[in-house]
Design a protein around this nucleic acid. Structure first.
Lengths: 287, 287
DNA sequence: GTCAATATGGAATTTTCATTCTATCAGTTC
DNA sequence: GAACTGATAGAATGAAAATTCCATATTGAC
């Protein structure tokens, strides 16, 4: 066995590993130094390649990779590779620090505090995802469709309802005509019956999908009312009825999904629509 | 060999693959549909896992994964997996630049994009604040008061309404008795008239304060109904009627304040209450 | 209600891959 | 300049993983 008592600890994350490698790089033998340089220059290769393929492109023997890993206290090459893989899974740099900060704050001392921290962390994660998962051009198209609509119909049930109730509030403030569908059952369909092709709808539904929302969206789509939708999976029944749809996966804590990303999205959409609409009105006046 | 001449082309990148999967998802048999959903919902798992581990967590057989891959023209599971791996490689070459990327990302090229980025950034800022501005002990007390209540009255108007409408939804799921006050004007006061000192209320109000909310909170406080409140200033009229109150300043973009922090707070409070309540019930039963 | 076609589960097989072992080589010390 | 220490290459080994195959189950058509 190499070390019965571990003198230096085995790095557990990429940053730590990087630090150790840099620290000892100078004293490393030739081939190991070569591997060290390669691993820091091509971390993605290490993450995905096989020992053989990496060995070839780093111009060493596979066994050298194993020795390299063992040199830094890992059991073998595979366990070192895990570090490189984990690095790709954790998305943003800020996120790590935030989590660490959360786990060290006062809340973690108290029981309910961990629940509190959990939801804050989930919200952060959700927001980190949103920028990459929303296509800017689709967003632009959505704004366009909704800005041109006479009346915007907001469709949402259950968990999605807070989203559209916020939009309703904001539209009210911004003097954009809207109809909130989903409050009292029964009158919904009468409301939707008034929607024509000069109007548009925005539907929000997360799994488990409320069948009514999907049905209402379909109804509107059949009547040539353009539908924009927000959902959490490409498999949502909403997608097929929509001209533009967004997939937004919210992170969760203890099974309760965050609404932060959806909320931020809704706010952005609302304000963008209002802005575009006012511009359209101004342009119309100018002529 | 399966197809000497490729009738439909094999997707070469993640986006193409996603498109093909979505296109054919309806005609897919049960298990393959299951894999389709799993793969699009957990792309990272597919990238890193082994066929066996993925199969377990998607609840199918390893062979089903191979069949799935072949169904879309790949030689086997491994070549499909390459697509998922490539997706991770191409994403953001430099993680350090990630935060900067938000201000320089694709969104900012388009007009509506800057609005979008602005709201995401505001939400992040809000969440960063929340941990320091909420006192863990006060949170614990709030949970205690509300967990002991028979019925929880949720008071909110306008901008705060989405917050409590989420809580209402969650309380419903969690089997906690509640009354949402603020929907239709007029009947509110009748509802509140039924509140007794075994109940409790949670009020949310941000400036400009809805005078009704403050009045209703005062009314309840006079009748010895404990009130917990969430607001954005120590000067809020809600504060004086409340046993416990929280000050939560949301960051804003273009004058529109985020709701992310309040939302995260509401979720944490809701779940903490439900948990504590169930514990109290269990303890009562045990005696 | 029966048959055919297709889908599925699970074991068997084959391939691939990490690791270990041994011979060789280079550098260092006495 | 010989003997020793440590590094390296390359083949051998054994484990693990992907894939294939076959029996069974399910679905849909007639």
């Amino acid at each position: 066995m190499a070390t019965p008592e571990t003198t230096t600890e085995v790095p557990q994350d990429f940053e730590a590993l990087k630090a150790v490698i840099l620290e000892r790089k100078a004293q490393l033998p030739k081939r190991l130094k070569q591997v060290a340089a390669y691993s820091l220059d091509n971390p993605d290769e290490i993450a995905f390649g096989t020992a053989a393929s990496i060995a070839t492109s780093a111009d060493v023997q596979p066994s050298t990779l194993v020795r390299f890993a063992q040199h830094f206290g890992f059991e073998g090459f595979s366990s070192l590779q895990q570090i490189f893989r984990a690095r790709l899974r954790e998305r943003t740099p800020g996120y790590e620090d935030r989590l660490k900060a959360l786990s060290e704050n006062e809340h973690s001392k108290l029981e309910s505090g961990s629940i509190f921290n959990g939801f804050v962390a989930a919200a952060h994660r959700s927001l980190d995802n949103i920028a990459t998962s929303v296509d800017p051009e689709a967003f632009e198209r959505a704004v366009d469709i909704l800005a041109k609509a006479e009346t915007i119909y907001l469709i949402a049930k259950r968990r999605s309802y807070p989203i559209s109730s916020y939009m309703a509030y904001a539209f009210g403030k911004l003097r954009v005509k809207y109809q909130l569908v989903g409050t009292a059952a029964g009158i919904d369909d009468d409301m939707l019956a008034m929607a024509g092709k000069n109007d548009a709808a925005f539907a929000v539904s997360f799994s488990p999908y409320a069948s009514e929302s999907a049905a209402q969206a379909r109804l509107l789509a059949e009547r040539k009312v353009p539908v924009v939708s927000l959902t959490d999976s490409a498999f949502s029944p909403l997608a097929e009825s929509s001209k533009v749809w967004f997939e937004l996966v919210e992170a969760d804590h203890a099974g309760f999904r965050s609404l932060s990303a959806s909320m931020a999205f809704a706010m952005a959409l609302t304000v963008a629509i209002a802005e575009k609409r006012h511009r359209l009105i101004d342009e119309a006046k100018a002529e």
